[in-house]
């Protein structure tokens, strides 16, 4: 089983549209995983059945039992996150500020502070309308630990692929370079960078590529909206050459990207454009890179 992770650095480059389209053309051999748990959108195109929902618990938040509290102030004194305040003469924890380090509970002389595990979201093993499987998640509002939820989604996807003998796991990663992205990259066999020929697209891809270099991961690049700014497309191609990154495909700036999302379809299901063929070739190119 091989794992391919699609990331972009910058949001809105077409990462999810392309991942969903690849899932469509390779539906007989791909198990998809949506690791953009912060803003998971794959389900809008693949219509999964939200099967087998499982609550995900990770991290803790401190809770003060005001009955047992003797207002000694030790918890407030050790908290580095200003998460404990005095309201109406009572010590209380602000859940949004609490990091879950549990230091306060350890110093409380009356054991008045508990640190219950937090339900930070749900994950699902679904069957999509294409009859392939999708592992995806829904992160709770304002919660931490999205990196851990990403790790969970990936682990479930991998073990399901092995169990069902599915050759490829295709992961829709998250934007940025922080913990959810780092988490989605662990164990990847190949990384697909989706970028666009804009000043931000190039800037963000450079940063995310530096991250890939730290992990020593092989990668290739899809330039989406390539004709939007031909000069910048050439700049990106120059960067790819200098860094020895495979140029996997150039996709056009095409209204079908928006149209497909609006219809709840993937871009390869709309007739009359060059997109289906390009995605088909892209999928075969990615597979051949994995053979190298």
């Amino acid at each position: 089983m091989k794992e391919i992770v699609v990331i972009s650095g910058k949001g809105g480059t077409g990462k999810t549209s392309i991942t969903a389209a690849l899932t469509y053309v390779g539906r007989g051999e791909i198990l998809a995983a949506d690791c953009d748990v912060d803003a998971a959108d794959m389900h809008l195109l693949l219509a999964p059945d939200f099967g087998k929902p499982t609550d995900f618990y990770s991290g803790v938040i401190a809770k003060i039992d005001t009955e047992a509290c003797i207002s000694c102030g030790k918890c407030k004194a050790v908290c580095r996150f200003d998460a404990i305040s005095i309201i109406d003469d009572k010590y209380v924890v602000s859940p949004l500020d609490c990091e879950g380090c549990g230091y306060c509970a350890r110093v409380c002389p009356r054991d008045a502070i508990t640190t219950p595990e937090q339900n930070v979201g749900q994950w699902f093993i679904s069957t999509t309308r294409l009859q392939n499987q999708l592992v995806h998640a829904r992160l709770g509002i304002g919660t931490e630990n999205s990196g851990k939820l990403v790790a969970k989604v990936k682990a479930e996807a991998r073990s399901l692929a092995i169990e069902k003998d599915i050759p490829y796991v295709l992961v829709d990663g998250s934007p940025g370079i922080g913990c959810p992205v780092i988490s989605s990259l662990s164990g990847a066999d190949y990384v697909v960078l989706v970028t666009e020929p804009t000043v931000s697209g190039l800037h963000d891809m450079r940063r995310v590529h530096q991250l890939l270099k730290q992990f020593n991961l092989p990668c290739g690049c899809v330039i989406n909206k390539a004709d939007l700014n031909p000069e910048f497309s050439r700049k990106i191609e120059g960067f790819l050459q200098d860094e020895n990154i495979d140029l996997l495909a150039r996709m056009p700036y095409h209204p079908d990207f928006t149209e497909a999302i609006t219809q709840g379809k993937t871009i390869v299901e709309l007739d009359g454009s060059e997109l289906p063929e390009k995605i088909e070739i892209l999928w075969n190119t990615i597979k051949s890179k994995l053979e190298e």
Partner: peptide, 14 residues
């Protein structure tokens, strides 16, 4: 602000 709905956005908007 950063995109999304998790901890970085909360920090930036609170």
């Amino acid at each position: 602000s950063p995109p999304g709905t998790s901890c970085p956005v909360i920090e930036a908007t609170k």
